[in-house]
């Protein structure tokens, strides 16, 4: 005869567990709405530029999150964490955009030992705004981001700096939570950021002189 190793919890314990569950449930209702952005990002379909680019994500970028405090009792606070998805999207995009992409060992600066690259790209998210239907009365969830890019040498000397915006929206979806809709809008904004960056990189005015030194587009090479 074997005896079961799992014993039934005592009645007092059950009451205790139920009490904790009720307290946690009640407190859970008071916390901010949290969205950890998750998505899949396709690689870009383009001829890679013949550049060896270093990449450095600062902590503020790799763990980027946006917190918006509730303005009234009927509103709720929001935390939108985009860091993980940002890194995933930019890693995929840049690997397809350039011949070689290297993650830097340390932040480029004087005395910092780093890999030899043509330049190091440092992205920043300067601003993020969101709108949900309760804010705007339009049945669309929106995310808007403003990026700032720094292009520096391995030793941290500035080459160029420019800004770029990205926007994503998704319509009110039936049986979809606010969090899922905000996530989808954020994924759309990230895709838009990638599309904007990939299609305008060679036309950024601040980069023109540096690009002309390093690389010339194919049509310019043809005599």
């Amino acid at each position: 005869m074997s005896r079961s190793m799992i014993s039934a919890p005592e009645r007092g314990n059950l009451r205790h567990v139920f009490g904790i569950a009720v307290v946690l449930f009640t407190l859970g209702g008071c916390g901010p709405e949290q969205v950890v952005v998750k998505g899949k990002f396709p690689p870009p379909l383009m001829e890679p530029l013949p550049l060896n680019i270093g990449l450095w994500y600062g902590d503020d970028f790799a763990h980027h999150e946006f917190f918006d405090e509730a303005k009234s009792r009927t509103d709720s606070s929001w935390v939108v964490k985009t860091g993980e998805a940002q890194v995933q999207m930019w890693d995929t995009l840049l690997a397809g955009m350039f011949d070689n992409v290297v993650q830097m060992k340390g932040k480029p600066g004087p005395g910092q030992m780093n890999q030899a690259v043509d330049a190091v790209l440092i992205p920043h998210v300067d601003e993020l705004q969101y709108a949900i239907p309760t804010h705007t009365n339009i049945k669309v969830y929106e995310i808007w981001m403003r990026y700032r890019f720094e292009l520096v040498t391995s030793s941290g000397d500035p080459i160029a700096q420019w800004t770029m915006s990205a926007y994503g929206k998704t319509p009110t979806a039936f049986l979809q939570s606010d969090q899922a809709a905000v996530n989808l809008a954020a994924v759309m904004a990230l895709r838009d950021a990638g599309a904007n960056f990939a299609t305008t990189f060679t036309r950024v005015p601040a980069l023109q002189s540096w690009l002309q030194q390093r690389w010339r587009p194919a049509e310019e090479v043809i005599p």
Binding site: P42, P43, P44, L45, M46, D192, G194, A195
Partner: peptide, 12 residues
């Protein structure tokens, strides 16, 4: 749209 990213995004 994924196979032809980024050429068929709303912006492009």
């Amino acid at each position: 749209v994924n196979a032809l990213y980024p050429w068929f995004e709303p912006r492009t």
